[in-house]
Design a protein around this nucleic acid. Structure first.
Length: 841
RNA sequence: GCCGCUGUGGUGAAAUUGGUAUACACGCAAGACUUAAAAUCUUGUGCUCUCAAAAAGCGUGUGGGUUCGACCCCCGCCAGCGGCACCA
């Protein structure tokens, strides 16, 4: 007999020579389409890891099932290949990133083919291919044209040792991921994408999807919508005159037209979720970055505080969260509802990036305001009191569901909820504010000062400002050069390539400069699922007709770590393109179902990592035991979405099962020509198996599907020398095929006849014959007071004959002894399941 | 602190969603084959009581509740995991 290595070689070659087995056919109306997507990998130098193997196998099993069930399945694969690790590796080994990427994707592709994933390789995409990123750049231009991309001074994470700007994801606990030195803040002019414009649409759109609750919640939390009001506080006359005498020297913003701060010299605008507590506002606090503060820098104390606060990293600010700091601004505002003059403080616990960068402080009813008031001896005025009173000396009262409004002349006695509504109308009538919402979601910083990314297709002209590259000049190809190390000044390495940077203005034709920043990693992975639909299209992102056929993605398999950022960015870009009219109007959402796969831990129950030395390399295990064993084990070890530890003993159990099955097939093959040699027991075993395996596989419950196959084999073996016939033998091979593609293909080649498909992987999935699912006899449990004491066997056709079954139940020896001396007060019969007799002494 | 999830044998886990708890697999024990070991096969395996068996009792983190009947539904608590976190 051939060993598994020969078998794998043989069939890999066969599949390579027959790629049409897994081809998805565009616009095939004769079949129902099924778009099965799994997150494409970043092709790192260390090859496919066990997590990839796990999630890809899970998606592959599903794709194979659907294909065999007669769907027109698209199951594509590609490479999310821009990114820092490649750039760093290239710098270290003095190779071109293009070359490193090529080597890595070649390795990944080879490993994937060895693992028998049924990808449609004709649709392979690569985010670093100019033909691909032409469209990534095109999307950016559309964003710019619609006013959703703007340039702004933004603080970034700066590594002083690498001399490079770091993305948030490259900062680990306040330190540079690469060199470990502490990250500083620096302000750099950056491209920003207005995802916040779509915040509401991204929340509402979730109802058009079938994501699991956990994912929907993650998205909603990340967007973090709060309903409340904007309220304008007039400054006291004195304060207003102080300010008007010190206008800011220059406006810090350049051309974005965005104003963070809507306040004028006479007003200070705040956002609050608690307008019901407005009468309790006894002071105000503004962020050190607030526009007003820049006009108060003559005061040494304020200047010192502000300079210090601005130099703090986000880390430091939040770490010191408990201990409030602050300084009095010298200014006063008027509480619009009671005319009270209240002080304005400056403190870094107020975030410039949320709301208006200024708050009204109600210390009696907010933890942070309370801490601040206690520390600086500010007034605390309660405006809500619960029944039974509250000791405001000890703590603030923050419960919104209970209590009555006090100390608030026109609204006294209302509940906080009623007061909330009342105040919204009131501030509107008085013209001092209006209802609004605020979001945790921030606009998306889109610039990276790295080489290995998509060039941002923008040109700067002295006269005409920022202009998009004309679309017919796309793609702007990343120049291949010798120098792509980071520069000293924090600019992208592209800035040193003068013959690339120097260009002409698309408006006036005069000298102009290209943008030298590149896009973040997310840019290419936002929309890749669209490109699979039409990977070679040169004139459109994808053809309308094809998108109409394939969209939406039916099932999207990915990791929990992408449930917020990637999924949100991706939905945003899709919705933007949808509003642009580029997407089919039937599909406002890109993904119908989202499935998150679990995590495979090392044998020590710890996350796999090189430093722990607990890494399992798929290629090592598959050369030792065979690909089928590895695939099947991964699917058997537990539910597809849970965290599980690698255990080689359990893997051996799967291997034994496959070996036993092989023996069974070898014995059975003697009678292969006898299509229907079978008996009643076999009919039941196989048809039940088909039903269960089909259901479970369809629902990604692979572990129980495999358990059923094991159970069935045990049952068949227990029948001894019974031949089950060719049809059932083929059914078993088919059901196993998605999990164990090699050995089933081998077995299929032995047992198939001329009428059968050339490959088991395009054979027709079996359908259970319902007539065999009903057994003639059933076992009915008999319980006394809910505890099972005995059981009887009944004819299935009699299962609804309640009185007969109950009297039979009372007649068994065991039950009689349980009943003696007791009286039956109630009899319950669950058809075909059980009898419960409720008795009393 | 907030949001989400999970607690079932020695282990990974099942349970038709309110109807016989522990399927399947691992591990362990005993046996068969073998000079021996590995591999393979057979049998047993929740706990207590028992030389053993029968019978009984106890058993799904924990305390209550609803129900003829609860791993499943409701209320409270404990433990663990993941995400967010000075978001006004």
């Amino acid at each position: 007999m051939e060993n598994f290595i020969d078998i794998e070689k043989k069939w890999q070659k066969f599949w390579e020579e027959n790629p049409n087995l897994y081809h998805a056919i565009d616009n095939d109306k004769s079949k129902t389409k099924k778009y099965v997507l799994v997150e494409f990998p970043y092709p790192s130098g260390s090859g496919l890891h066990i997590g990839h193997t796990f999630s890809f196998t899970g998606a592959d099993v599903y794709a194979r099932l659907k294909r065999m069930q007669g769907f027109n399945v698209m199951f594509p694969m590609g490479w999310d290949a821009f990114g820092l690790p490649t750039e760093n590796y290239a710098i270290k080994t003095k190779q071109k990133p293009q070359k490193v990427t090529k080597d890595n994707t070649d390795m990944f592709r080879r490993q994937m083919k060895a693992l028998a994933f049924s990808f449609d390789w004709a649709r392979e995409v690569n985010t670093t291919d100019p033909k691909y990123y032409k469209w990534t750049q095109w999307i950016f231009i559309q964003l710019y044209n619609k006013g959703l991309a703007y340039k702004q001074e933004m603080p970034i994470n700066w590594c002083p040792s690498c001399k490079i700007g770091l993305a948030n994801e490259e900062v680990v606990n306040g330190h540079c991921e690469r060199c470990g030195s502490e990250v500083e803040r620096r302000t750099i002019s950056q491209w920003v994408v207005k995802i916040t414009e779509y915040a509401d649409k991204l929340i509402e759109g979730l109802k058009d999807t079938d994501f699991i609750e956990k994912v929907k919640q993650a998205q909603i939390n990340w967007i973090g919508k709060s309903d409340g009001a904007k309220i304008r506080f007039k400054l006291s006359p004195n304060s207003a005159s102080i300010l008007s005498s010190s206008r800011p020297q220059t406006s810090s913003s350049d051309d974005s037209g965005r104003k963070i701060d809507a306040s004028s010299d006479h007003e200070l605008e705040v956002f609050t979720t608690r307008p019901d507590t407005l009468f309790g506002a006894t002071f105000m606090v503004i962020a050190p970055e607030h526009e007003l503060v820049s006009r108060l820098m003559d005061n040494e104390e304020i200047k010192k505080y502000v300079v210090n606060a601005r130099s703090k990293s986000d880390m430091e600010r939040t770490e010191l969260a408990k201990d409030k700091t602050g300084v009095f601004s010298g200014l006063y505002a008027i509480n619009p509802v009671n005319g009270k003059e209240i002080p304005i403080w400056i403190s870094d616990f107020v975030l410039a990036s949320y709301g208006t960068g200024a708050i009204m402080s109600v210390p009696a009813h907010d933890e942070r305001d309370y801490d601040f008031a206690k520390k600086f001896g500010l007034e605390i005025v309660p405006v809500i009191e619960p029944e039974g009173g509250w000791d405001f000396e000890k703590a603030p009262y923050t419960d919104v569901d209970n209590g009555k409004i006090i100390n608030s002349e026109p609204i006294n006695g209302l509940t906080p909820a009623a007061a909330f509504e009342k105040m919204l109308t009131w501030i509107k009538e008085k013209g001092i504010g209006e209802k609004t919402s605020s979001y945790h979601l921030r606009d998306w910083i889109f610039s990276r000062q790295h080489y290995w990314g998509e060039p941002i297709p923008m040109i700067y002209c002295e006269e005409h400002g920022w202009q998009p590259v004309p679309e017919n000049q796309l793609p702007i190809v990343l120049p291949e050069v010798e120098q792509y190390e980071p520069t000293d000044n924090g600019e992208s390495p592209l800035s040193t390539i003068s013959n690339w940077v120097d260009t002409v203005c698309p408006v006036c034709g005069k000298k102009a400069r290209r943008e030298t920043d590149t896009m973040p990693n997310w840019a290419g992975s936002d929309w890749y699922f669209l490109r699979y639909i039409d990977p070679d299209n040169d004139t459109e992102i994808a053809s309308q007709e094809k998108m109409k056929y394939w969209m939406p993605v039916d099932v999207y398999v990915g990791g929990d770590e992408h449930n917020t950022l990637h999924l949100l960015y991706s939905r945003f870009i899709y919705k933007f393109l949808y509003d642009l009219g580029v997407m089919p109007k039937e599909n406002p959402e890109p993904y119908y179902k989202r499935l998150s796969h679990g995590v495979i831990l090392g044998p020590d129950n710890q996350r796999m990592s090189k430093s722990r030395g607990n890494v399992i390399v798929p290629e090592d295990v598959s050369t030792k035991y065979g690909v089928d064993v590895v695939r099947m084990y991964l699917m058997f070890m537990g539910p597809f979405d849970s965290t599980m530890a690698w255990n080689e003993n359990t893997l051996m159990g799967v291997k034994r099962f496959l070996d036993r099955l092989q023996n069974y097939f070898d014995k059975q093959s003697k009678q292969i020509n006898n299509e229907n040699a079978s008996n009643a027991k076999v009919d039941v075993i196989i048809n039940k198996l088909i039903k269960k395996v089909t259901e479970d596989t369809d629902n990604f419950k692979y572990n129980t599907a495999i358990a059923k196959m094991m159970e069935a084999l045990n049952e068949l073996n227990a029948l001894g020398e019974t031949y089950i016939g060719g049809k059932y033998l083929k059914d078993i091979v088919k059901m196993l095929a998605p999990f164990a593609p090699y050995s089933t293909e081998e077995e299929w080649s032995k047992i198939k006849n001329d009428k059968d498909e050339i490959s088991v992987h395009i054979a027709k999935w079996p359908v259970a014959d319902e007539t065999y699912l009903v057994e003639d006899k059933m076992r009915v449990a008999i319980a006394i007071n809910g505890k099972v004491r005995d059981e009887i066997e009944i004819e299935s056709e009699n299962q609804n004959n309640q009185s007969e079954i109950i009297s039979a139940a009372k007649e068994t020896e065991k039950i009689k002894s349980w009943l003696s001396g007791k009286s039956i007060v109630k009899e319950i019969y669950v058809p075909g399941k059980m009898v419960n007799l409720v008795v009393r002494d």
